[in-house]
Design a protein around this nucleic acid. Sequence first.
DNA 1: CGAACGTTTGACTATGATCAACCAATGTGG
DNA 2: CCACATTGGTTGATCATAGTCAAACGTTCG
Lengths: 250, 250
Amino acid sequence: MAVFDVKHVGSLSPAVPREGAGPSPCSACEIRSLTICAPLNDIEQTQMAAIVSTVELQSGNPLFDEGEPADHVFNVTAGTVKVYKLLPDGRRQVTGFLFAGDFLGLANQETYAYSAEAVTLCNLCRFPRRKLENLMERFPRVEQRLLNIASNELAAAQDQMLLLGRKTAREKIASFLILLARRARQRGVNDNPVFVPMSRTDIGDFLGLTTETVSRTFTQLKKSNLIRLLPDSKVELSGREDLEEIAGGF
Amino acid sequence: MAVFDVKHVGSLSPAVPREGAGPSPCSACEIRSLTICAPLNDIEQTQMAAIVSTVELQSGNPLFDEGEPADHVFNVTAGTVKVYKLLPDGRRQVTGFLFAGDFLGLANQETYAYSAEAVTLCNLCRFPRRKLENLMERFPRVEQRLLNIASNELAAAQDQMLLLGRKTAREKIASFLILLARRARQRGVNDNPVFVPMSRTDIGDFLGLTTETVSRTFTQLKKSNLIRLLPDSKVELSGREDLEEIAGGF
DNA sequence: CGAACGTTTGACTATGATCAACCAATGTGG
DNA sequence: CCACATTGGTTGATCATAGTCAAACGTTCG
């Protein structure tokens, strides 16, 4: 029993023109510039559409688990996904939150090296790994794009190591809020108040803190008039300048 | 005044055959299978040699600093390099140690996002970023190789996040020793006793600990008969099985 | 209405940091 | 050649940040 629904977007065989009368969802894709499909022209896009399927994932449901065969890669088109690793005794490290446009599933192992789970209701494009690799042979620009994405992720990972290894709880929370705001801005979403869809536990597992410390630090920042907690998981960054300074470790 | 010496390996212009009578150092390269040059055939290798120069770097000297224009990428051929990021007040996070075969300098920014410095006497191959990019257009296998390397680094970064965010000092030190041993093994070097060329400060900055805690944890492991500290910066992993368990968080 | 869950707050604790002294090895200059 | 300084490492005493354990509160959902 699958925990998510899958729909095929294009025809399965490149020889057959795409089925139905309407255009493939890809041509209407509003976030293409953010995805791995960004460098494709119309013809190439059609070939991409032929191997892609869309996935809808309810909040809290797994996309895949660490150790599973890594048969697919994904592009988030809506919602928020978290990726994490576990220790045998249950300690968890969230290594990233993914939003619309973000790519997911890069690995050269046969199996996923981490688990992925929906934080909110999500939509994703799903590519069979093998078929995408074949396509990349023909479209080197997609491979370049992927290398570009990987480089960015690597830089983000290094920032996160600095945060985890050397920042205080206050600096971690400030950095986190600034990060969410920046990422919202990148995809053209309102960045103040910023939408914070994940739980205190998830935030703690991302920042190397406990939920209690996350909660305490939020109230502390609130009392300093640097943030305001609004309804619907929104946080107003009242003292954005100061938050940036705290986040930067000044 | 440069802190490192540079020698050109091949001719500067691809039109002119490589200078001198002897073969380029690349054809004698003992660690090619570990580097970005691995997928090159002889002809391609010659073109690569034309843009490469070699760098020797004394222990403690910088290769580049965060914020500098990222004009070159590097491949370590001998010795150990550390890469790190700093906070304004001097707090440091070492994000990685690099050994023979390791690639260095990936970034899509105009500037380096981190600093790199020699831990021991080092040799490196230096590639002008722009010229390598041009070469990659012609040799897509090098780009694939680079994507492969980036994927591996990303997986390693996620492991390190788990370590920094969720492991105890004891688990961090055990993980570190196991990591050094595994990496030594990968490049065909004796992995027990393992060579630990970096200082306690560097280890602490890599693991998110202070030098004192690193030192105390070493003595603690020593008293548990899991390791022995040998001369010449060697550490014997006496209880390797147990160390693996501790490192894994059991 | 009650159960379950996520969040907040409080009291106390523990892990690792800080501050400080000491030791061993290495290098320098008289 | 030896006194001395410097550096890296170890150990000790104390402290502070964040973790643990616990309780209460508010929301949401059967």
